[in-house]
Amino acid sequence: MTVPGAWFLTLAAILFVVGAVGLLVRRNVLVMFMCVELMLNAVNLTFVTFARMLDDIGGQVVVFFVLVVAAAEVVVGLGIIVAIFRRRAGATADDISLLRG
């Protein structure tokens, strides 16, 4: 029995929405990072599913690029967090509001 591709695409869409809503709703910066990762992995799942459905290796290659870039993004993000933690305790996005939007 094979699971149809549409199911994977739906799962990826749900993961993406969960990540996007989390990023906008949660206030802990570390949790916000996790939400970004969730969104990027939803993208990966979509690419792999389409690659299987189209029988095209190109979609799987994209995933490697996304993984590497996601890792680099997390490194930069954690660096910024560490810089903030050194100046103040806690990493809540609401506290970081010296600049008026």
Binding site: F16, V36, M39, L99
Partner: peptide, 16 residues
């Protein structure tokens, strides 16, 4: 720091 964090969070959201 705040400039960097805001830019980062919205930048990665946009990329995703």
């Amino acid at each position: 720091n705040e400039a960097s964090l805001k830019y980062y969070l919205l930048g990665v959201l946009a990329s995703a």
